[in-house]
Structure formats: structure tokens, C-alpha cells
Design a protein around this nucleic acid. Structure first.
Lengths: 149, 149
DNA sequence: GCGGTATAGTTGCTTGTGCAACAATAAATA
DNA sequence: TATTTATTGTTGCACAAGCAACTATACCGC
């Protein structure tokens, strides 16, 4: 087994670890968000992304990228949230193909209501993952990516 | 903003980064595996997990954990692969509730055929992700988790 | 051994997702 | 300006996923 093969195997193992941790966290968030706000993880992701956006509006395609979803899934996701009154579609004046989505006050409220639960669930999930030997190193590495210090 | 709030935000950002990278990689693998072997990422994950198992057999529940899938999804996933002749169900002698799944020679062949393409796609995805500033640190951290040196 | 509880896996049903085809608008080219 | 080409978002369709309910087997206390 040469150096090159090692690199391949190391990448594969890294990916498996990443996928496993992702799965754990997503499951925990899903349970938590569903319980507290009847939101799925992607739905929360949309609301959160919009809330961290200047003016609280984003275009469909930005949303698709932010959620790693297809265009069609994004359309229906936005429709779903719009039907619940959590955001609104706003036609784009300068580019009439484009559509902005914007949080409604109700959307902001629900997000603020869900956020503490989300954050707690994330913390729980990471703590739980840290107990799994294969996942612990990644859990430790994660906060170092963006730490201020 | 206190220290505690910072920790929450750091975790959230770490999670967003993890999810984004996961999405990119999964999409790239999906395309690649679909093209070369008509396999989805989870399907490949099952075959790969079985191949790295002594005796090439696993129980349904192990598989469910390895793929981060529900029990019912696992049942149908295994059924799908069984219908294609890539693995077989084997009744467990000592625990008659349990069911082992085992790769068939055909399954091994397909896996070996798909693996190079999978590994290349993974490498491409990581290289691509490395170009995205927010993702680069995580991409760099990944191979260090399990590196031999 | 016998009833109650826990565990393993499967099935019905509903829902979210991706792909491909589409409509509408913008941008490029002649 | 007219025509092609690219981009943005939406819809029809097929399929995979989760939840809850179910069957079958194992385990535990009596």
C-alpha cells in the first residue's frame, strides 16, 4: 500500500466520520425543532439564513445554495413556509424573473422561539457525539474552525 | 455578548460549515455513483460497509446505524439491493429475529467497479470545497483526524 | 413453564426530494 | 431591432424517507 492509497483511505474515512456526525446532529435537531416549532431542519435553516441576511431577504437561488437543496425543493419549501405565514414572496423589481423571500414578523417570532431549543439540541448532539471515539476528534476540531481567539 | 453566547454561535457556525461541506460532497458522490453504477450514496455506503466487515455480513440494525437511516428505510434499501442481486438476506440461526445481509459476488464486483470513481469524486469534491473560504479550514482538518503520521 | 416486556424486522401511509420539461424574463449577438 | 441563448423560478412525475402499527422472536420475573 503506497502513499497514494493511504490518502484515498484517509479521505474516505474522513468522509465517513463527517457523514456520521452530520447524521447524528441532524437527527437531534430534527427531533428538537419538530417538538418545539413543527419545523424541519431545512425549514429552520431557511428562517435562520433569512434572519442573518441584511434586510431579511434572499433570492430563491441563494436559498437553494444555503440549504443544499434543488431548485424545485426550494420552491416547495418556500411555499410551505409562506402558507404558514412565516415568510413572504416579493417580486424583484429590477429583475422580474427573480423572487425575494422575506421573513414575516411571525416568522421572526417563531425563529426566536425555536432558536434556544435548537442551540441546546446542537450542544447535546455534539456532547453525545463526543462520547463516540471515532467522532470525538471531529467534534473537537469543529469549534476551532471559527473560534475568535 | 458574553463568553457563553460566543460558544453557541461558534457551534452554530461549525454546524453550518459541516452541513455545507456534507451537502457538497454528497451531491458530487451522488452524480458520480449514479453515472458509473446506478447507485445512490446510501446504497454505496451499504455495499462499502459490508465489504469492510469480517465475513461481509451485518445485521439490519447495524446497517441502519451505519447509514444513519431509519429501520424502515433500511428494510427497503436492502430489498432494493437484494432485488438487484448485490446482496442476500441470511436468517440468523442463533437469534431468529435477526437477519444478516451479505454481499454477493456481483455486489463485490459492482463495488470494486464503483470505488475508483467514488474516490475520485470525493477528491474532486474536497478540492472544490477547498476553494470556498468558509469550507477550507474544515477540509484541511478532515484528513488530520485519522492520519497515520 | 407462563405472562409481560423488550427487541428485530416489515408494511401502509404521507410527505419531501430530485430530475426533466416548462414558462417567463434578461442578456448577447447579428 | 430581431433572434438566439442564458437565467430564474415553477410544475408533473417517480421514488426514497420517516412514523406508526404490526408480527415474530427473545428475555425476564414469577
Amino acid at each position: 500500500m503506497g502513499i497514494k492509497d493511504d490518502a484515498v483511505e484517509v479521505r474516505a474515512q474522513g468522509w465517513r466520520t463527517l457523514a456520521a456526525l452530520h447524521g447524528l446532529i441532524e437527527a437531534e435537531l430534527e427531533r428538537s425543532l419538530q417538538a418545539v416549532a413543527q419545523l424541519s431542519v431545512v425549514e429552520y435553516t431557511v428562517l435562520d439564513a433569512l434572519s442573518r441576511q441584511d434586510g431579511w431577504h434572499m433570492r430563491m437561488q441563494q436559498l437553494a445554495r444555503a440549504t443544499a437543496l434543488s431548485a424545485s425543493a426550494t420552491t416547495r419549501l418556500v411555499t410551505r413556509l409562506e402558507d404558514r405565514g412565516l415568510l413572504t414572496r416579493i417580486l424583484c423589481a429590477d429583475d422580474r424573473r427573480g423572487i425575494y423571500t422575506e421573513l414575516t414578523p411571525k416568522g421572526v417570532d417563531l425563529l426566536e422561539e425555536a432558536r434556544p431549543s435548537h442551540d441546546a439540541a446542537l450542544e447535546r448532539a455534539l456532547a453525545g457525539a463526543h462520547e463516540v471515539p471515532e467522532l470525538a476528534p471531529l467534534v473537537d476540531a469543529l469549534p476551532r474552525l471559527h473560534a475568535r481567539v
